[in-house]
Computed example of a mutant assay.
Amino acid sequence: MNGPDLGRGVLHPGRAAGVVHLDRYGPAPGLARLVEFYWLVRWDRRGLPAHEQKVLAHPNVHLVFEAPRARVYGVDRSLFVRRLEGAGHVLGVKFRPGGFRPFTDRPVAGLADRSVPAAGIFGPAVDLLNEQVLSGAPEPAALVDAFLLARLPAPVADRQAELAAAMVERVTGSPDLRRVDELAVEFGVTVRQVQRLFAEYVGAAPKWVLRRARLHEAARRADRGADVDWAALAAELGYADQAHFTRDFTAAVGLSPARYAGGR
């Protein structure tokens, strides 16, 4: 892949790198247990056709500062598509798995495949902050730091949130994990407990997180630019056969693995 690293899940990243500019910022130390990073995306399509960017989302909740209002995006279990036209920028907060739960009074699964006005969770001040961020205020990440720190829940360790985050990290960082029962055994809990943790704190089922991690790896391999032995990759990712892998990939991306790789 040519160009900057846009992260796993961004489809056709070589093409996207010619359209968007991405910056990442670390959160203030007091937020590090809840926020993974801030991302700032800029684009300028003035005089150019609109660009549709497709993303295989991760199991994270995002607070996004965008026009016309700030919104909270739950885990998108389908294919996320953003149409970019004109010139603009968007700032997002990528919460760690489980990291958004302290800011809301209900399970994160209720946000799955949805976005809601952020004011419903953070109050009207979030829309005032949205105006500042979109107006080009200097150091917008610092403004968001101050906003979230002022609303930080009491620093009582939530062992369940930490456990959910550790499970997601294990799944997304280790392609050798195949099944939910394996995850349960490794962490010394039951399968039902894993399912409840993910519904409460992550916002997507553990089986979906396992499958999405495999598809992220498959897309990354396809984007490398070299020929891929799809049968071997299917076996490496734990699929029973290539046909099953192809069905999963096509359902998520909208193209077969071979067609996706050919469209780089």
Rank of each mutant, 00 (worst) to 15 (best):
L143H: 09
D176P: 11
A137F: 07
G99I: 02
A150L: 15
T104W: 13
R170D: 07
R151T: 03
A146P: 14
I121V: 06
Q193Y: 12
A109F: 15
A118N: 00
R178T: 13
P175M: 09
A164P: 02
V144C: 05
A199G: 08
G136F: 11
A109P: 04
F103N: 07
V171I: 14
G98K: 00
L134K: 03
E162S: 05
M167F: 11
A150C: 03
A199K: 09
T190G: 06
V144R: 01
A118E: 00
V185P: 10
R159K: 15
Q160D: 13
G173K: 03
L148P: 03
G173T: 04
V126W: 10
N130W: 07
N130V: 01
P138E: 09
V180A: 00
A165P: 02
A112L: 10
A125M: 02
E139D: 08
A164Q: 09
Q132Y: 10
M167R: 13
L111S: 00
R114E: 12
V144S: 02
F147C: 06
A137R: 11
A125P: 01
S135V: 03
Y201F: 08
A184H: 05
V180N: 03
T172Q: 12
P140S: 06
G188E: 01
Q160E: 13
E139C: 07
E186G: 06
P102S: 02
G99T: 01
E186T: 10
T104Q: 10
G123V: 06
S135H: 14
S115R: 15
S174I: 07
R159P: 12
F187P: 06
A141K: 05
A166L: 09
V144M: 04
V191L: 12
K94L: 13
L143G: 05
E131A: 06
G136Q: 05
I121H: 04
R106F: 14
R179W: 12
R159L: 13
A164I: 05
A141D: 11
P102Q: 14
F103H: 08
P175E: 09
D127V: 02
K94N: 09
E131C: 00
F187R: 14
G110A: 08
G99A: 05
T172I: 11
R179S: 12
A165E: 08
Q193D: 13
